[in-house]
């Protein structure tokens, strides 16, 4: 979220006009949050994480794991770009590369949703930004 100095100045002046001498820090905070929310169409702007995310899932193999995960990704309007899966002695490993730029959800929400799905399936699901792998394994 970027607010220019001019906007901060305007907001401060507005707050002084509206709240007067009785303003407490809490009142000012409420006022400013409301004003910023108004300017961003009703809710405080949440931070957007752009780029590709690597999703890794592990657990005991059972039917429907891929369906369940991809289903929830589709619901979140996440673009699935690559998928690779292996079964090692009944142990299921899945790696997906997805792009969350077009999704209305941010990375944190995606992680929470996947954690919920993981719990349902009793498997572990990680979602990490691609850069960490890029940094560690590519020069």
């Amino acid at each position: 979220m970027n607010i220019s100095e001019q906007q901060i100045w305007d907001l401060t002046n507005q707050a002084i006009d509206k709240l007067g001498a009785n303003a407490s820090p809490d009142m000012i905070r409420d006022y400013v949050e409301k004003e910023i929310a108004n300017r961003h169409g009703g809710s405080l702007p949440t931070e957007k994480f752009e780029g590709r995310v690597i999703i890794t899932a592990f657990g005991i193999n059972k039917p429907g794991i891929v369906a369940k995960i991809t289903g929830s990704l589709a619901e979140m309007e996440i673009d699935l770009q690559d998928i690779s899966q292996k079964i090692m002695q009944n142990f299921f490993t899945l790696i997906m590369i997805v792009d969350i730029t077009s999704s209305p959800r941010n990375l944190k929400e995606v992680q929470e949703e996947l954690a919920r799905v993981g719990k349902e399936l009793t498997i572990k699901i990680y979602a990490q930004h691609e850069d960490i792998f890029q940094y560690m394994f590519r020069i």
Binding site: T56, I95, F133
Partner: peptide, 9 residues
């Protein structure tokens, strides 16, 4: 895939 299975694991 850009990354090897083993790298991610």
């Amino acid at each position: 895939m850009n990354f090897e299975f083993s790298e991610i694991l």
